[in-house]
Structures are given as structure tokens and as C-alpha cells.
Computed example of a mutant assay.
Amino acid sequence: MARRAWELDLSGRPLGETVLVPARSPYGYGRASYELNLGGNYDCEHCYLGLKQFAGLGWPERERLFHVIQESGALWLQLTGGEPMIDKLFPETYRLAYGLGVMVEILTNGSRLAAPRNLALLTRLRPNRITLSLYGATAESYARLTRRRGAYLMFVKGLDAAHEAELPLDLALIITRHNVHEADLMRAFAERYGLPYSEYTHMSPTIYGGAETLATQAPDHLADREPFNGCNAGHTFFHVDPHGMASICKVGRDDAIPLMTTGVEGLSHLAGVADSLMLRTGGCTGCQFSGPCRVGRPLAKVYQEAKAPMDRYCQHATTRS
């Protein structure tokens, strides 16, 4: 079974030293995500993090946080940022996550994947998935969006090294006004490597309520979102920021729980926070389009706080036009 599922050969290895069976958790969480920091080695124009600060937890606090994540019952953990691989504690953090027996996904721009230390670590302790953001099909478009010369070459070098090492990869195609003319080339790029990919055309305001990121969108190429039918944020999934504050997701960060103070017990309040954040308030109260609405309430609130054009998130704008 292990060989079929994970290409893991357990022949001749004691089961007790190889397979980790976690204790059943009363909290019922299956997934979590953790921002190692908000810093980045690019200055991407579309980045929803806004200010790119490198502050975060030190090592003893991270160890405590990861044991809280383990006690929550989470079996899948996403490591993100900022750019997680530029974090000075990334190798230790990854080894700790892997050692807890969770399935680890890494969101990265790929610029540090070819670094010998990172590549050796991820090849020896293979992650469940590495998702790389693709910002264009040429060096020129890459540099315009990331505002970093040489970013495209760093991405390709990292992708080639990880692909050669047969690491599990997929791509996130970020389509903006800078590269929309290369959308077909970006798809062909992914297909040339034989990698699965997803496309992202909607940019979010910053977590601080700034609308500057919306200028990067290509309005004529915004793909229709699926109707929002609710989600499990806060109930079976939670997000942790660089300071150990747990929120329902990366967007809905209000009423965050300080896990360094509360421990895993703090997560018992998160479902109630999630339910309150999903209530329709303000201009969304009594909306006749609430059924087929394509944007969850926390995301709509971010757009409203940023005074974003209504057509970016609300069907009323489409109806009026």
C-alpha cells in the first residue's frame, strides 16, 4: 500500500519506526497553512501582503507552534510566505514539519529551489507538493511584474533542478496586465514540462486594505469565479501568520487567536469566529444575488475596505452594466 500510494518501500523496515499514527484530535482540523514570514526577494506588483516585513517567530516558538498544529489534528500543512525558502529557519522548519508526519506543500517562487542545501533537503525528505508561481513566459514580463531583473532565470533554474530531481511539482499561472499577452505561452510552458497548473486572474487587495494591487489585473481577461457555496475555513482548516496568530484563512484575518498564548485550546474559538465573519453585513445585507455570489464574505469585505471597483467582486456591477 505504501509503495502504491507514496512510492515508499518499507520492505525489511520495522513498522513502528517508520509509520507515525497520530492520536485522534478533539479539534477536528485536517489542514493548516503557516506563513514563515511576510518578506520576499521580489517586489511583486500584485502581492496581497503589501508591506514585506521579515518579522516572525524564533525557533523555540516555532517548535511550540508546530506541536500545536500537530495537536489540532492537521495532516496537511502548507508552508508559505512571503517567500518561505528565503527564511533563515526554512530548513529547520521544513524538517520539523516533515518529522511530525504531516503532508507538506510548499508555495514558492522557485528562486531558491536550485540552492544545493534546499534541493538536497527536499530530495531526501520529499514534500507532498511544491507549487511554483509562474509570472510570465519571458524575462521581460517576469521583470515587469516582479520588479526584479533576473527573476525569470532564477525561476527556470529552480524549476529545472526540481524537475530533474523528480520532485512533485505543479504551477500557478499568475496572469496580469504585464503578461496577459503571453497567457498561451505560459500554458505551453507548463505543458512542455508535463506539469499540472491552475490559472489566477483575480488579484486581491492587500491584507492592510490597500487597492494598489488591483491595477495589475487585466480586466478583459478576468475569469469567472465559481459560485461561493461556503467553505470549511475556521472549521476544518486554519491559517497561522508569522507571529503565531491563527485565523480562518489568509484573507479572513480578523479576530485572530494568539496560539503562543492559548495553545491548541485557542482553536476551539475559531469556528465561532468563522461563522461571524461569514455573516453578510453592510452593503451585502439582504443582497438578491447572495445565492449565486462568487465571493465569500471575508474577501468581499477586503474589497470594500479597499474601495475597489465593484465589478472586481460583485455581480451588481455586471447587472447594472
Rank of each mutant, 00 (worst) to 15 (best):
M1I: 05
R3W: 13
D9W: 08
G12N: 02
L15D: 06
E17G: 13
T18A: 15
L20Y: 13
R24H: 13
S25T: 04
P26F: 01
Y27N: 10
E35I: 06
L36Y: 02
Y42S: 15
Y42E: 04
E45T: 15
H46E: 11
C47K: 02
Y48Q: 10
L51K: 15
K52N: 03
L65P: 05
F66V: 05
H67Y: 13
G73P: 08
G82S: 02
P84M: 06
F90K: 08
E92D: 14
V102A: 04
M103N: 12
S111A: 14
R112K: 14
L113P: 08
P116K: 06
R117I: 09
I130P: 10
T131A: 10
L132H: 04
S133T: 11
L134P: 08
E140H: 14
T146Y: 00
T146I: 09
A151Q: 01
F155I: 02
F155V: 07
A161G: 12
E166L: 14
L169F: 01
A172W: 03
L173K: 06
D184F: 01
R187G: 02
A188H: 07
A190T: 00
G194C: 11
Y197H: 02
S198V: 13
E199R: 13
E199Y: 05
E199N: 02
E212T: 11
E212A: 14
L214Y: 00
P219I: 10
A223G: 02
D224R: 15
A233G: 11
H235T: 15
D241Q: 06
S247N: 05
T262D: 09
T262A: 12
V264W: 05
H269G: 08
A271M: 12
V273G: 10
L279Y: 12
G282W: 07
C284Y: 07
C284S: 09
C287G: 07
G291A: 14
P292H: 11
G296D: 14
P298G: 03
K301R: 15
M310I: 02
M310F: 03
D311I: 06
D311L: 01
C314N: 01
Q315D: 14
